[in-house]
């Protein structure tokens, strides 16, 4: 076999593999992509029900209801609009009210979300312990201004 012919085959092989990879990528980017919205964007966009999406925002204050063990309902807010979330399963350790979270799930007809996953965002700034202790002593823990 001449070197020229070998090279041709090699190039052809590369192109075939590259083509196959591109097809896979295109197919999968259509199938496996999840859109991300804030509550306001979600309401603006009028999304068809039963679509998988992610929504990010804060857990609204005093909206958290524990319906039974591992069955929760809460609202997620961006300070202008709220979205109701239903979730069955384990909540992350960092989950609490007024904490930034991201929820993945399906949207239903009433623009509520049936969540399949809840991710809590890490809070990177903490208060020093000494002050925290004092605050707790005086029942003023809630009064932390970030």
């Amino acid at each position: 076999m001449s070197l020229r012919f070998q090279r041709l085959i090699l190039i052809l092989l590369t192109l075939i593999m590259l083509g196959a990879a591109l097809l896979l990528i295109l197919f999968n980017t259509k199938q496996n992509i999840v859109f991300f919205y804030t509550p306001s964007e979600l309401l603006e966009n009028n999304i068809a029900p039963d679509k998988k999406l992610r929504i990010g925002g804060y857990v609204k204050k005093s909206s958290f209801v524990k319906k039974s063990l591992n069955n929760y309902e809460f609202k997620i807010t961006d300070n202008t609009n709220d979205i109701v979330i239903f979730y069955k399963g384990m909540l992350p350790d960092l989950f609490r009210e007024e904490q930034g979270i991201v929820v993945e799930g399906l949207i239903d007809k009433n623009n509520n979300i049936v969540a399949s996953k809840v991710y809590a965002k890490h809070d990177e700034n903490y208060m020093p312990a000494s002050i925290k202790k004092e605050l707790e002593k005086n029942n003023q823990w809630k009064k932390n201004y970030k």
Binding site: N28, Q31, I33
Partner: peptide
């Protein structure tokens, strides 16, 4: 200007066949 996330399923079904 839309936000998306590409999750595990994409990688599983593209990288593995390759």
């Amino acid at each position: 200007n839309t936000r998306i996330s590409v999750g595990g399923p994409y990688f599983n079904s593209t990288v593995l066949p390759i």
